[in-house]
Amino acid sequence: MMEWVDWSNALERAAGWLDDIHWQISRGGQLHAALESLFRGLTLLHRKWDREEWTRFCLEVVRTHPLRELIHQCPYTRHGFDKPRGYAGDAVLIDYLYKELRSSGTTQLGKDIYHFLWRQSGPRSVRERRELLAQELDALAERVHKPRVLSVACGHLREAEHSRAVAEGRIGQLIAFDQDPLSLEVVERQHPGKLVQPVRGSVRSILLGKASFPDMDFVYSAGLYDYLSESVAARLTRLLFGMLRPGGRLLVANFAVRTPDAGFLEAFMDWSLIYRDENQVRAFASEIEPAQLANVEMFRDSVQNVIYMVLTRR
């Protein structure tokens, strides 16, 4: 497949490849087959080319190609590219990956592209992440009476809507911490009352010691670390771990190297994550005193896209 990847005129050939896909979609051909070819091809190019070649392809070929406007009829893809909140991966975008939209006020082509993307492994991992966090909340409430929980970069806190413990009031306090006031407004509407407490703040405020939440039973951040440098991730992990009570648990997550969606996200949505392997995720805990660690657990989700690390405080 795509034997021209290593040729000297690879960028020119890549433009021709996009021409073929554009023609196939424009004439109402086999949309699923065309999107499969696009998705698989972008995965291959992203893995095969060095960063400079890949970036040139995204900026010089994809951004100027008429195929981009066709793909951007998909509301999820367009939202990711436009970044109306001013940053990538906002909570509205993530909501597109949860309950599949049936009426999105867009063209039929846009809906069809969206439904194709919704079924890819990356969105499946995002939905699985929500369920895993809801299960963690429920299990915590079984172990600890009225536990205190902190969600960092909470977004719309959709996992809480899937938690029996939250619905039944068996969580003592759930602090929903996020930089985006619009996301926190959604959280407040979804969870009136005192159980869920929205708090506005940034990672920087935690790093500077301006935001701290002591005596936590569970702290988690499942969609943030993909954007952090190694040094910031390690420092943040140490500070979050320090907020735990003895026996408390910190859960962090990061999308893994070779996640197949990466090529499409970067080329058509201008959405870049920092993909890591297990050793790199384990390094998040490098600033924690080993004597404070009772246990370190690492695992991947069912489709092998997301690496989870759970640290238990002694």
Rank of each mutant, 00 (worst) to 15 (best):
V152M: 02
Q73E: 15
H115N: 11
I113M: 12
R63I: 01
V144A: 07
V92P: 01
S103Q: 14
P66I: 00
Q179Y: 11
V126S: 11
L117K: 00
R68I: 05
R63V: 02
G169I: 01
Q173G: 08
L157P: 11
C154K: 00
A141T: 01
F81S: 11
W54I: 04
S121E: 15
T55G: 10
P84V: 00
T64I: 09
P75L: 12
L157M: 10
D82K: 07
Q173M: 12
I171C: 11
F177V: 06
H162V: 05
V149I: 09
R68D: 08
T77K: 04
K111R: 07
R158C: 01
R143D: 04
L101H: 10
G169W: 00
V126C: 14
V62E: 07
S104W: 11
W54R: 10
P75F: 09
R78A: 15
R143E: 11
R170C: 09
A139E: 14
V166N: 02
H79I: 04
L137K: 00
D82N: 08
R143N: 01
R56P: 03
I94V: 15
E159S: 09
C74N: 14
G169N: 00
E69A: 04
G89R: 11
A88S: 15
E131P: 03
K111Y: 13
V144P: 13
S121R: 09
Y96R: 04
H145Q: 12
A139F: 02
Q173H: 13
D178K: 00
R102V: 10
L59G: 05
F116W: 15
A153Y: 07
